[in-house]
Design a protein around this nucleic acid. Sequence first.
DNA 1: GCTATAACATTAACAAGTTAAGTAAATGTG
DNA 2: CACATTTACTTAACTTGTTAATGTTATAGC
Lengths: 162, 162
Amino acid sequence: MTIPKRPPPAQDSHSASRANPSELPHEATKALPIALLRAREALMSRFRPMLAEHDFTSQQWRVIRLLNEHSTLDAAQLAEKAFILPPSLTRILANLEARDLVTRVQCASDRRRYLFRLTSLGETSFQKIYPDRVKIYKEIEAYFGKRKIALLLELLDDLAQF
Amino acid sequence: MTIPKRPPPAQDSHSASRANPSELPHEATKALPIALLRAREALMSRFRPMLAEHDFTSQQWRVIRLLNEHSTLDAAQLAEKAFILPPSLTRILANLEARDLVTRVQCASDRRRYLFRLTSLGETSFQKIYPDRVKIYKEIEAYFGKRKIALLLELLDDLAQF
DNA sequence: GCTATAACATTAACAAGTTAAGTAAATGTG
DNA sequence: CACATTTACTTAACTTGTTAATGTTATAGC
């Protein structure tokens, strides 16, 4: 995202520093949804350029990665695991099929479903990208520490139950 | 987002449960970026329908809220505080201006800049929505606890420095 | 003062998020 | 079997995310 920093505003006549008796966050920058966004962006700003060099978006990569792990998945399974809504997934899969990275086979027992699988080109792409991903993840670990990552994951999973 | 749960896959021939000697997350669902996304979505799935009833997206609402707090901001300040990239912000502001919720004034000392301000209609909209927002935030607090929220915010801010 | 450079906002082009509606296949009930 | 309902995926329409390029205004160096 890389929003450029600016010098502090010359003046800011009101309310930015007022009391907050309710103790609820009133500045957008202190709200939980934004904090989650900022933290995620800090990570994605490292992964995104790397993936772009391989001509993938982060969503496309999630699909590739899942198909590498599970060999075949249908659209609903991909949507759930990659946390991508079905309409987005339809487009992403169409893109990946057009690039011959993924193939679809209609499921025999339920013809509403399609099973997706990596092509050999898709597998090759995965193998090329994976080491770069590991490298970045290790940088995150080096900065943040395994313990804090584990703690953060725990809190996030808990919050996700809400 | 509300991705429907599905029964576990009938069979999953390989690698989903293999050893992971590197101790790096290999399942997409365990990666930090996805965990951040899931947690955020848990929150947004509450805010979004409420905002939609008032005909706002969460991004539009962030802009409205910031202009309520700071009375006037230029685009760069809004982009930084709302964590929205300039091209998106341009469209959002155009939308809000078209709906007469926000006005723009060209800055006299620097004619590249525009200062944005809520209209009275914009202020009214803010006042209508704010109580609903507080209500939802209190539900989050009730579920998650102030202590855990504070801890999570701390970790997220730390990670955002990466 | 003039020119090169930087900064602010916008436009363009494409990918993805979001909601609602649509199509086709499966399932359940009478 | 006929019919309504549900499920899986897709399409449509709109908004936002993302990168690159453009036009305009400020600023810095000469």
